[in-house]
Amino acid sequence: MFGKIVGALKYRRQFLDLLAGVPHYETYVLHCRTRHPGEPILSRGEFVRQAQEARYNAKGGKVSRCC
């Protein structure tokens, strides 16, 4: 039970970010390091800025929130 709670706490930052609709930066960094080593990694500010642009640009009828 305790282990489960600690396990859940591990996700708290990702949970809060995704609740607000922002992709999780640490996950991205981990992804870049393991999958594309040596390639440049976006800074946190740049990463969030691009994510914000993408969320509200509605290309192809994409809607990010509901009534």
Partner: peptide, 24 residues
């Protein structure tokens, strides 16, 4: 998987994301 839009995400975390988007 690109670490950004396509990211395998824990189902509890994704539930929060989805619920926050549909609740209005």
């Amino acid at each position: 998987n690109d670490g950004k839009d396509f990211v395998p995400t824990h189902k509890g975390v994704l539930f929060g994301h989805h619920f926050a988007a549909i609740a209005g």
